[in-house]
Design a protein around this nucleic acid. Structure first.
Length: 267
DNA sequence: GCAAAATGTCAAG
DNA sequence: TTGACCTTTTGCA
């Protein structure tokens, strides 16, 4: 489930679990063997998220080392009490603290980073709604001069960092914006409100560990008797009735990703 | 038992 | 624009 909220939640969690502790680091699968060997036994100093990227900082006396993790589509961290037992499946990195350890599976990236690498990463990312220094004006400047559809711009990590396919679809629905509308055709006020909505939605995502964007007053209709309350308006609801107007939710492919929207509410 | 899909990114053409 | 890649889970035989 890796959009930005997942990574910020993981950073927070790892900071709490391991921050200031010496940790055992290994790569049971072997594909991060050299990196793991380098920081094994060092102090886990700090974990931070930038968009969908996780940066861990390790220290040992005067030495320090960064590790960069990107979960890609299906990467995940899981936790187990120590002793963790034999790894199950393909575990790229295992971090063991005093009481709890975590296993990393399926990441796109798990690699050593230099401070310069981190600078480059931050420089190529747009503002992150989950960071205090996230600046909506930077997003505005990138969007209002681009003719690309707003749905494509929101997925572009150079424009705004941390938004993925679910938040993209949902925030456009909540703003009642046509996903195909060009960036140039959206005014400053609309984008400022969209940013503010993302900030509050993604914070909820961090807190709950899952994406939940349906307002209580919209929580009715065909889905209301489902065991779980509905959490999304449009994402993966192709053909199902819009929670507001009943029109079937539409789906198309945009730049290789599935896009969902309500053709009636979002014009 | 196997294919397909998934909340992502990058490089090749 | 397309394909490759990382891994697990789901659905269909």
């Amino acid at each position: 489930m890796p959009e930005g909220h997942t990574l910020h939640r993981i950073a927070r969690r790892q900071q709490k679990l391991f921050g200031g502790q010496r940790v055992a680091v290994s790569s049971p699968q072997g594909r991060f063997a050299e990196g793991a060997a380098l920081v094994d036994g060092w102090e886990f100093h700090r974990a931070q998220a930038w968009g969908k990227h996780l940066i861990q900082g390790y220290r040992d006396g005067r030495r320090s080392q960064l590790v960069h993790v990107h979960l890609g589509l299906y990467g995940s961290f899981t936790e187990l009490p120590v002793p963790m037992g034999e790894p199950v499946g393909q575990v790229r990195m295992r971090i063991e603290g005093a009481e709890v350890g975590t296993d990393l599976r399926g990441p796109t990236a798990c690699e050593l980073y230099t401070p310069a690498d981190l600078d480059d990463l931050v420089a190529r990312l747009g503002p992150d709604p989950l960071r205090r220094d996230g600046d909506p004006e930077r997003m505005w400047r990138a969007i209002h001069r681009s003719r690309r559809p707003i749905a494509a711009l929101l997925m572009d990590q150079k424009v705004i960092a941390g938004v993925g396919n679910v938040y993209r679809a949902e925030v456009l629905f909540r703003a009642r914006l046509d996903p195909q509308r060009p960036g140039t055709a959206i005014d400053h006020e609309t984008l400022t409100a969209l940013w503010a909505d993302l900030v509050s939605l993604m914070r909820i995502g961090v807190r709950r560990g899952r994406i939940h964007v349906v307002a209580p007053e919209d929580d009715h209709g065909p889905g209301s008797y489902a065991p779980d309350r509905p959490r999304t308006y449009v994402y993966r609801r192709t053909g199902e009735p819009c929670r507001i107007c009943g029109t079937p939710i539409a789906q198309t492919e945009l730049e290789g990703r599935n896009l969902y929207w309500c053709p009636s509410c979002q014009q």
